[in-house]
């Protein structure tokens, strides 16, 4: 096992995560988006698992397991069920056209490379690439939350953002376990809260589209 090979695989997996993030940007159907989200978590699980292997940090396998079991299987299933049960429109309405969003996504990847690579010049190469790629995933997740109106796709954007943060946390070698477990748990909590909110929204309105929610802008005349 040469260092070069370990690095190449880590790099490839982290790069794939960025690729899947970009792929998420052009989904215009909810079910397809949820599938890509599951794939995103799957790639994350592989990337984290590989980090656990090359860092010889067995506790990271837990993080990988959570990514695999919870984020790649349970959450997509729950989201799909929610879309079905609530009868949400299957098409996603975007604020900005898909072409422009894709260009912005590419620009964000370039930006994060330009920002992170010079800064982390002294860090070890695996962590360095991981952090730069993780930042692109975070930024694309943000972009997705900004350009989507539909609540479910905003949740998907948020989860992909969290995946990016997770990748960064595992890339930072020896980062204490406390944080990783708590990140996983907080996603669980966060998701439950989101779920509650989605159902409440359903209870009160006929749409989960945030544009409809925005009808109330705070100040009724």
């Amino acid at each position: 096992m040469t260092h070069g090979f370990a690095f190449d695989v880590a790099h490839m997996l982290a790069g794939s995560l960025v690729l899947v993030s970009i792929a998420m940007l052009y989904q215009d159907r909810l079910y397809a988006l949820i599938n890509v989200l599951a794939l995103h978590a799957l790639v994350l699980a592989a990337a984290v698992g590989w980090q656990a292997y090359i860092q010889q940090a067995p506790h990271l396998y837990i993080t990988a397991g959570i990514a695999l079991g919870f984020k790649a299987i349970v959450i997509p299933m729950a989201l799909r069920r929610m879309v079905f049960r609530l009868g949400i429109h299957r098409e996603i309405e975007t604020v900005v056209s898909i072409g422009l969003t894709m260009l912005a996504g590419i620009a964000l990847v370039a930006l994060s490379m330009m920002v992170m690579l010079p800064v982390t010049a002294h860090a070890d190469p695996v962590a360095r690439e991981d952090i730069a790629l993780a930042l692109s995933v975070v930024l694309i997740g943000l972009l997705m939350m900004v350009t989507r109106r539909n609540a479910v796709s905003q949740v998907a954007g948020f989860l992909s953002l969290e995946n990016g943060v997770n990748l960064a946390a595992t890339g930072a070698q020896g980062m204490p376990l406390v944080v990783e477990i708590s990140v996983a748990f907080s996603i669980l909590i966060a998701f439950i809260v989101i779920g509650i909110f989605l159902f409440r929204i359903r209870e009160r309105f006929d749409t989960v589209d945030l544009q409809a929610l925005d009808a109330f802008r705070g100040e009724r005349q």
């Binding site: 993780a134 930042l135 975070v138 943000l142 939350m145 609540a151 905003q154 948020f158 953002l161 969290e162 990016g164 943060v165 960064a168 946390a169 944080v179 990140v183 966060a190 809260v193 989101i194 909110f197 409440r200 929204i201 009160r204 309105f205 945030l210 929610l213 925005d214 109330f216």
Partner: peptide
């Protein structure tokens, strides 16, 4: 659980979570 309260909570939740994710990074 009024319309306004749910919107406020949702907005707070989404913006707060994004803020918190950036803080973790």
């Amino acid at each position: 659980r009024t319309h306004e309260a749910i919107e406020a909570a949702w907005k707070y939740f989404i913006l707060g979570s994004v803020g918190i994710a950036l803080a973790l990074f």
